[in-house]
Simulated assay, not measured.
Amino acid sequence: MSSEVRFTDFKSDKQPTWCPGCGDFGTMNGMMKALANTGNDPDNTFVVAGIGCSGKIGTYMHSYALHGVHGRALPVGTGVKLANPDLEVMVAGGDGDGYSIGAGHFIHAVRRNVDMTYVVMDNRIYGLTKGQASPTSREDFETSTTPEGPKQPPVNPLALALSAGGSFIAQSFSTDAQRHTEIVQKAIEHDGFGFVNVFSPCVTFNDVDTYDYFRDSIVDLADEDHDPTDREAAKERILDADKEYQGILYQNEESVPYSDLHGLDSNMADIPDGAPEGAMDLVREFY
């Protein structure tokens, strides 16, 4: 891995087609900076994405990439990492992709603790399909398909991750460039499944969860007396419905990645006789 790598090395020659002002620009920039800061480069990075506004992020980044189907990015990322542990695997998605059709995969990816990073661009709406309520939309959020609101509580992805045994759970704000980059970098450096939910405002279809709203509402845990290794303290913050937190909510510093537990440390492509003994049985377990 090159020490000379810059975040611009991760930029492709494709121009994003996101709406001007979309929070996904800042989310992606932070991902690229975090990858460069950790010494990774495009030749050892694999970006997997699903469907939604975030889906083409692999096209906009210069690395190995796969644009998968709706809700299925995490199984692909898991397969890539187990097949080639030398790759830095980053999975990107949205709140609809990850917490609706992909919710089952999310829970199991968290509990397996495969050593990869999952960045979710949470704009609390379905942006690509013109503004329907998503799993994280407010209970009274009015859209064309929910004119009186969804009338059900929003999904709390941080609580789902904690209850599933998450070893790294964090939240960031796409426009707070330095903190967002720092948090994603910590997720990459974590030994295990690094999960970052990113407040990434939709400027076209969501006029409630705006940049101004998050700037006024976010409480940065860097300014609080919060110990991220204290699971009970993390639970208290995560279940606090009155505040929007930024920072590392929880980190298990003794986390052991799935591959280390099962001895899957060899690149399957480099083994003439195929995968390590028992490896494919473990992979089939996921499907």
Rank of each mutant, 00 (worst) to 15 (best):
S3Q: 14
D9S: 11
D9V: 03
S12I: 09
S12V: 14
Q15K: 14
W18D: 01
C19V: 11
P20H: 14
G21K: 07
C22R: 07
G26R: 02
G26S: 09
G30I: 07
M31N: 01
M31S: 04
M32R: 13
K33Q: 13
K33Y: 02
A36Y: 12
D41H: 14
D41E: 15
P42C: 13
P42K: 12
D43K: 13
T45A: 11
T45S: 05
F46N: 04
F46D: 03
G50N: 07
I51V: 15
I51W: 01
C53V: 11
S54F: 05
G55I: 01
K56E: 01
I57P: 01
I57N: 12
Y60W: 11
Y60L: 08
Y64W: 11
Y64N: 03
L66N: 12
L74I: 14
L74D: 08
A83F: 10
E88N: 15
V91Y: 04
A92Y: 15
G93H: 06
D97G: 07
G104C: 06
G104K: 03
F106V: 01
I107T: 13
V114S: 03
V120G: 00
N123C: 04
L128V: 01
S134I: 05
E139G: 00
F141E: 06
F141C: 05
T143A: 05
S144D: 10
T145L: 12
P147S: 13
P150W: 12
K151L: 15
P153D: 15
P153C: 04
V155K: 12
P157E: 04
A159S: 14
A159F: 02
L160Y: 07
S163I: 02
F168E: 07
A170Q: 05
Q171K: 11
S172A: 15
T175Y: 10
T175K: 06
Q178M: 13
Q178E: 15
H180I: 04
T181D: 10
K186R: 15
I188G: 02
F193H: 08
G194Q: 03
F195S: 00
V196T: 03
V196D: 00
F199W: 10
T204G: 00
F205G: 01
V208C: 04
T210P: 12
Y211I: 06
Y211S: 00
R215C: 05
D216F: 02
I218L: 10
D220R: 09
L221F: 08
A222H: 13
E224C: 14
E224Y: 11
H226F: 09
D227P: 02
K235S: 00
I238N: 03
A241H: 08
K243N: 14
E244D: 14
G247Y: 08
L249V: 06
Q251L: 00
N252W: 12
S259C: 07
S259A: 06
D270T: 10
I271D: 05
D273I: 09
E277F: 12
G278F: 00
M280N: 07
D281P: 00
L282Y: 09
V283W: 06
R284G: 09
R284A: 12
F286G: 01
F286R: 05
